[in-house]
Computed example of a mutant assay.
Amino acid sequence: MVDGTEENTGDTEDAGGDETAKPAPGNGRKGGGNHEPETSESLKVFGEVVKSFRKRAGLTQEELAPQVRYSLPTVASVEQGRRFPPHDFVERAEDVLDAFGTLRGASRHLSRKPGLARWFREWAQLEQEAISLSTYECRLIPGLLQTEAYARTLFMDQLPPLNDEQIETQWAAREERQRLLRERPNTAFSFILEEHLFLRPVGGPEAMREQIGRVLEFAELRNVEIQVMPLDRMHAGLHGPMQLLETPDNRWFSYCEGQESGQFSSVSKVLSTLQMRYARMRSQALSLEDSVSLLERMRGAA
């Protein structure tokens, strides 16, 4: 269950009798919503360790920030246990503070999914274990593929507005999730992305060139397939974005998101429909090779 509650959405249960479709509470945004991300004891302890080594080195937060190449609010949030420390923050702090490997070792035991609202954490946990993850997106480049510049532009434009700390927390959450693509080489990732996503200059032309380059980098991974759905083609996904996920025990889940709501489902009837649509879309989109060629041309023209 997404948030510990179960609501009737009108979907019928299949013969198993225990599968439900659940609308996500909050506003349905990934990494956001009406629920503030919760801290954890492991993050608090890690923050205290960083603070202790910083004081041992005779540094203030203001002095440490430029040395680890992160902002003062980020350093403060890490020390207060409110932000999951990015990998390069840990590595730089380890060197700057001469921490004897303590920070690097402690970071391996951090448990909270950073910046994720409570209702999204079940999906994020499933992502960690999935053997396949399929995504169709028609609104924005998916979070798993976004560059920092692209993501921060979205965060800066979000309404209601986010403060600096919330933006830092949400980017840390997104960056942490992106590690899945490289750290789970046995997980098959499939993305079908509308061509117009690469035509909207989110963050400006240079940021968009960087974003297209990032997508091309991921397309080189053996476990990642990226297809572009061309503008001039009708297809089976016009109902909206979708995600499909398969677990190691071959259970399937889906997630569909709107502006103010999201629906997480394990209902067989729903899954069957979405799987049929996604399979049809893979045949309707450009091939892997043609998709890469198109993106390379678009990067040159951006």
Rank of each mutant, 00 (worst) to 15 (best):
Q284K: 09
L271V: 06
R209G: 09
L274N: 09
L43D: 02
N186S: 12
R54D: 10
A236H: 13
E206G: 11
C138Y: 07
E137F: 07
E246K: 15
G17C: 02
M208L: 13
S268C: 02
R104F: 03
L154P: 04
S71H: 09
A236W: 13
G262E: 07
V49T: 15
L286I: 13
S291N: 05
Q80M: 10
R82H: 11
P23H: 08
D290R: 15
R209Y: 14
Q67S: 03
G143K: 12
L116K: 05
R299N: 00
R83M: 14
R233H: 14
N223A: 03
V224Y: 11
D232T: 13
R177L: 03
Q61T: 11
S291P: 11
G204I: 13
F264E: 01
K269T: 10
P73N: 08
P161F: 13
W252A: 04
R139Q: 14
L103E: 06
S132G: 04
E62G: 06
H196Q: 05
L288A: 11
E19R: 15
N27P: 01
F84A: 00
H87L: 02
L295K: 09
F189P: 04
T12S: 03
A93G: 08
P23N: 00
F120H: 02
W123N: 05
P37E: 08
S77A: 15
I141P: 00
A124E: 12
V78I: 15
V267L: 05
W119K: 00
G28K: 06
A279Q: 14
R182E: 11
E289Q: 15
L288K: 15
S293H: 13
L110W: 04
H196A: 07
L197K: 08
S261C: 06
R280V: 02
W123S: 01
V68S: 07
P160M: 06
R83I: 10
Y278D: 05
Q243H: 13
